[in-house]
Design a protein around this nucleic acid. Structure first.
Lengths: 196, 196
DNA sequence: TTCTTAATATGATCCATGTCATAAACTGAT
DNA sequence: ATCAGTTTATGACATGGATCATATTAAGAA
């Protein structure tokens, strides 16, 4: 999001992390702005019973975990690398300075944050709807609208396990519900891949 | 949020609405920035079965419904007045101009948006936790931390119906669960009022 | 005050999803 | 090619919250 040549003027640290490593934990206080150079980060909550709920996932060029920086509030979720990941780590003070000196980038950040808010609003709405078919279908439609091209059958490039983590539904339920959706003709299964 | 003297330089309209009036509906495209002068607005989703889920509620001085403006995306929820409400209505183009000309207010907006994001993250986490007691208790603790003073017993100034709408739990369940929480000693009931 | 509406309350019943167990299919690493 | 870990799959069963019905209490309007 922040161009490399800009962020590097503010003396960020570069961080290299192996796969499946926690960068920070839910409850930690934020001190840095993070931006991914390569790799992926997921923000997750772990329930009391050890089940994972994914708040979001971010890849190359994307930043994450900004909201608590603005309030010195504890992180609402933990950040974990998905694969080997390299990222910029910029102290919050410098981050604020950067925003101040680059109004255009500040506006871009606002744009990104509002997009994530709309995503969260959608998920919350679906979660308040206790119908698994509806939840999964709406989510797939969101993905299609967001990442799909034209009217081609759209490949849902997520495992059932991931859908489970993203929607807060148990994986067995996802498996059975996807099967139902295929029987209804709402989605198409090619092998195990889900299309819509 | 935006001081009256600033916003008025951008020629906003003033809108007076009676109670229980929809300002815009889920799915509508956004054209204006809204800021409440007096009264209250709630942002809600209505499920297929007519049940209401509240995304947020806003009062005097607060703005709402900004995220879609940044993307020309449909509102993820409807806005409805709670009581008689007066608000500023500013065209999006002028709103962006205002942000550009007032970096301090832009930063304040970012701060407000990130706070709401953290709220949503918390609710999502709780919603992925299928335990009613936990959900209600965590929510009350959030309110206490946010609005409570010191260590005084904190009055949860919401009806069980409102808790139901905010958490996506049926009102009967809220009633029964609050009763359980009182029996556990987790909350105190004075009459029907909930304290913690 | 009276009327109307919303909130609270409680019991009975239902059912979709969670839970648990087990196994096969797949994937990636060594 | 082999092994370990993950994903998908399926059945049996349990259960917490949803639903439905009904009644009481409280709050706000006329």
């Amino acid at each position: 999001m922040i161009p490399a040549e800009v962020i590097e003027k503010y003396n960020p640290t570069k961080l290299k992390l192996p796969a499946d490593t926690f960068l920070f934990m839910e409850g930690d206080l934020p001190r840095f702005y993070y931006q991914i150079i390569s790799g992926q980060i997921k923000m997750i909550n772990i329930n009391t019973d050890g089940k994972e709920f994914m708040q979001g996932q971010f890849g190359g060029g994307q930043s994450f975990g900004e909201p608590p920086i603005f309030h010195n509030a504890p992180y609402p979720a933990s950040a974990k690398t998905v694969g080997p990941t390299v990222l910029y780590k910029l102290h919050r003070d410098k981050f604020f300075q950067l925003l101040k000196e680059h109004p255009d980038l500040h506006l871009e950040l606002t744009s990104i944050l509002t997009k994530r808010m709309m995503y969260k609003a959608m998920i919350m709405k679906e979660m308040s709807n206790h119908d698994a078919q509806h939840r999964i279908l709406t989510f797939i439609d969101y993905l299609k609208k967001e990442y799909g091209t034209n009217n081609e059958p759209f490949l849902v490039n997520l495992t059932r396990q991931q859908l489970s983590n993203l929607l807060g539904i148990r994986v067995e339920t996802v498996i059975r519900t996807v099967k139902q959706l295929a029987e209804n003709g709402e989605v198409e299964l090619r092998g195990r891949k889900i299309f819509r």
